[in-house]
Amino acid sequence: MGANAATLRAAAFAAGLLFLLLVPLGLSRYGVYIMSLWAVMTIAAMGLNLTLGYAGQVSLAQGAFVGIGSYAVAILSTNGMPFIVPLLVAVGLSFAIGWLLGYPALRVQHHYLAFVTLAFSTLVYLVFRNEEWLTKGIYGIMGFKRPTIFGISTATPLAFYYFCLAMLAIATAFLAWIVRSPWGRAFVALRENPVRALSLGVDTRRYTLMAFAIGSAMGGFAGAVYAPLVEFVDPTPFTLALSLNILMMVIVGGSGFFFGPFLGAAIAVLLPEWLRFAHGWYLVIYAAFVMGLLIYSPTGLLGVADRWTANRKTRRASAERAAASASLSPEKP
């Protein structure tokens, strides 16, 4: 049965990959843009999933890191640097700022931590809007080119979609490695029982900061891909709403599940587009759907799947038990 489940999972993975590779071929320019946006948001949500889902630290600042990454790339690219340099700067800068943002987490937890990161997120937005010498304020930055990778230009929407997909693949591979490494185990230990983790010799202090820094760096990475996607960076997308939206993606998909962010980002990015027929009401319907889903399954979409398989296993086990006792019963007097 274990082998069966593994085959099933591999088949689902292959089908998903094939779908992602082929589907944009049949989509309009806007459709391809939405799919690219989904890939970017998935990267950002994966980062938050590491901080929140694996290490258990609430952050309402992931949107700010997407902003920091975007601005780093926009500013450096307009100065004519090849894409890899701004990319590394975006990731490095987000890592460093994320590390610093982790310090309050050493002192306060839960809702207090949520509010510190919320305040940070709003402050970053104010800096984007007001420091015109650096960010050009509300006028925004444009006129930077999409990157050329190994001599292949990503200027067309379709080429850039595959670029986003490649970035998503890199982020996925990185995260898969992290959660399987001793670090990932330490993050989970931190979430489940910090006191016990500490008594077992896990340096909880360092791992708390690390969880923040790596999660934030992935936010910056997403931002670095977002800037060339939209080709215009201004403060508007990076309000608190983005951070809340990314947090919603993580919870809706299933916090702590590896593929949760993929589903969550799909709901948050694609569902409103499908609901466009409802005109102004689409956000109302979307919000109602999210509420309904969370009321039905607070552990998110993958929580539903999890519960479903667990139920099936229980049922199968009890059926086997019943069969076993039935076959035994004739021997009983």
């Binding site: 609430v58 839960h110 809702h111 949520a114 809340l244 947090l247 919603m248 919870i251 809706v252 916090s255 956000l283 109302v284 979307y286 919000a287 109602a288 999210v290 509420m291 969370l294 009321i295 607070p298 552990t299």
Partner: peptide, 14 residues
């Protein structure tokens, strides 16, 4: 606490 907090975020959009 968290799923409920997210649910109220959705409620605020609603």
């Amino acid at each position: 606490v968290l799923p409920l907090a997210i649910c109220t975020m959705a409620l605020s959009i609603f």
